[in-house]
Design a protein around this nucleic acid. Structure first.
Lengths: 159, 159
DNA sequence: CGTGAAATATCATAGCA
DNA sequence: TGCTATGATATTTCACG
């Protein structure tokens, strides 16, 4: 599953799109079942998957875990702006806290946007205390999620 | 893979954690290979997976696609505050734009945080124009991603 | 790119510790 | 919860259009 080249001009055909949809829905579906779904042979499905993996279109097959079941019922979105000279330290701290499940460096006033999942308010407080030594923070608690994380559009071009 | 009950007190044991790690890394790994990795039989691994699926710990097996390969090299994080009386319309619009790959409703001044992937600046402009009819927006462009989206911690409790 | 067929590996279930 | 054994499926490779 190593990316062989940056393919600027690849685009899925109708079959690829359907395969991606099937895998998006359940990445453990068998090749045989996908083959049946699109009326093709298993070997050709296999080749298509290999191709998409090697092109880097498919980054990985993975799990979506339920945070609540694992004891993390709450999520916060935190904007951070590091204090002068603290950038490296802040990046290291962020990478080191497993409850920070995503962090982007952005343009504009706030430098980082982080997504933090937490078990209780005291735990969030503890994490924010650590971060506050290195950055100004602005925290919002997630009340609901109108759009759950989904993949980029992968339907074939019908322009 | 239907969630049977909200299990407040479940927590993975050492074997479960290793299985989750294997699946997190590659959700298409065979049951037999997992069994080998943890020195157990395939049927018992199968049962553990079923249990975690039914408990709702494992939400789904899915794909991680590479946005760039699919023509979406850019990401923006947008904070939105809807205009009076426009909440429902805004939520409908957000759900309808496939380039908005995630959206949370939060406490505080800004009501929504959205993640938008886009192909070009004109496309982002177009999307923001649509949103701007219903809400104030504040947009940041992602420059880099120090922590890529990862799952909640699932190592077994070693307190 | 696609296929069919055959060797190998895997999965699912039943029966039992 | 776990194991072994087994028949049914799935995967993968190959020669070929």
């Amino acid at each position: 599953m190593r990316k062989i080249l940056k393919n600027e001009n690849w685009s899925p055909d109708a079959i690829d799109s359907r395969l991606l949809a099937l895998l998006d829905d359940n990445a453990r579906i068998s090749v045989a079942e996908m083959a049946r779904a699109v009326n093709m042979s298993s070997p050709s499905i296999n080749e298509r998957l290999k191709r998409m993996e090697e092109l880097g279109v498919i980054n990985k097959y993975t799990l979506e875990l339920d945070p609540e079941s694992l004891g993390y019922p709450l999520t916060a979105l935190v904007r951070m702006r590091q204090y002068p000279g603290k950038l490296k330290q802040l990046e290291a701290l962020i990478a080191d806290i497993p409850e920070i499940i995503e962090c982007d460096k952005v343009t504009g006033e706030d430098c980082f946007y982080a997504r933090i999942c937490f078990q209780s308010m005291p735990q969030l407080d503890d994490i924010l205390d650590q971060v506050s030594a290195l950055a100004d923070t602005n925290t919002s608690i997630v009340k609901s999620t109108p759009v759950k994380r989904r993949n980029v559009p992968y339907g074939f071009k019908r322009d």
